[in-house]
Write a protein that binds this DNA or RNA. Structure first.
Lengths: 208, 208
DNA sequence: GTATCCATACCCATTACAGGGTATTTGTGT
DNA sequence: ACACAAATACCCTGTAATGGGTATGGATAC
């Protein structure tokens, strides 16, 4: 019996998947969450074998949640279930530890196939995904990014509307340190002008 | 027997709805489309009674498709089925002739209720929608919105990264006039703090 | 006529952010 | 060891955005 959890902000889609799973004798849906935070709480209790994970969700996004889950529960299989078919999205989910990636544009039945494959220890990728996006897994583990860890963290906080002094308080640094990080990011990203960093933070969050 | 068509770019959601409708003896799904254009072709042939209409779709969006359908087939009931819960989206779909509006965040079962209600000649609106968005139907024809025409235009330019002085030059007004518009928007939208207007402009960019 | 909103334009003040740097220490790779 | 990036912290400057107002004229509704 495969225990499955679903994280997806659109309840209607969860309900559809629920209908699909209802007649699968070897799969049981043990819980659902409409945001990343609720999911993390749910899995502590329900201990699912496989998790169907949306990317774009309130509170904690799917990539972040996947990282957390695969770190704490390496035996739980995470399958991304997303509208995003871009390379960056796919690579980030794989880097986060996802064992599968399904597109919402594909038939719902694929979900069953993916769940069974991932539970068996295999990986499963939607046929509509360009295989080259998956093949570059070797580069993913190096996790290289244009921005440093601190820069990415600050960018996230900027996207949340925090002022530089608020960010400094959150990170226990001087305001000038945060400003320097901002300048570094602006330089690296080739931006210029007031508000461009905020624009970048907001437009790139889900712009894979 | 209610003939239903679905326009939705996410096939997985269509499949979920299909599963739901399968056991409804008085409803039959006569066709599905993954974009607005395919839908318009489909309905010429299949003549559905009720159409479940996504808003954000490739080729022809749901609002445009709804306008076209209600103009040519005033007896077909269109139900919006969308992630967008904002007043503007709702009012635009209603103005386009939709007889119902469902949110994807809501349980899938609502679809059944809405189809039956609209087929009966009633309207049906998701309980999660603020009633004031629906109640102001009389104002819809005038296209009333929280923000004035000038304000919306300026907000768009803000979202494009234009500075206040750039916007002033574009609109042939003083900088102070644009600033005043900004203040009015901030007040109306209940925002506060630097960058919040830009955040609002960007976060609503895909929404309405 | 009054009230309200929109549009235009101005006054003042504060500050957050960008732009230009400087410096030191630590960490990492070769 | 050297080179480079990251992290931390500071200096200075300029200005765009917000926050608090003022005022006038036009349009609309009652």
């Amino acid at each position: 019996m495969i225990k499955v959890a679903i994280a997806e902000d659109h309840q209607s889609l969860i309900d559809g998947i629920d209908l699909l799973l209802k007649y699968e004798e070897d799969i049981t849906l043990v819980g659902t969450a409409n945001d990343g935070k609720a999911l993390l709480e749910l899995i502590q209790e329900k201990k699912p074998d496989v998790i169907l994970m949306d990317i774009k969700m309130p509170k904690i996004d799917g990539i972040t949640a996947t990282k957390s889950i695969t770190a704490q529960h390496p035996n739980m299989g995470v399958i991304a279930f997303s509208m995003f078919d871009q390379e960056d999205a796919i690579q980030q989910m794989i880097a986060a530890g996802a064992k599968g990636y399904l597109l919402k544009n594909s038939p719902l039945e694929e979900v069953l196939t993916a769940i069974k494959a991932v539970h068996k220890g295999d990986t499963f990728f939607d046929k509509a995904i360009d295989p080259s996006y998956i093949a570059v897994q070797d580069n993913i583990s190096s996790g290289k990014s244009l921005l440093s860890k601190s820069e990415r963290e600050i960018l996230t906080l900027i996207g949340q509307g925090k002022t530089t002094s608020e960010i400094a308080a959150i990170r226990f640094t001087a305001v000038s340190t945060v400003e320097k990080h901002r300048k570094n990011m602006i330089r690296k990203l080739g931006l210029s002008g007031k508000g461009e960093l905020l624009r970048y933070a907001l437009e790139k969050k889900y712009d894979f």
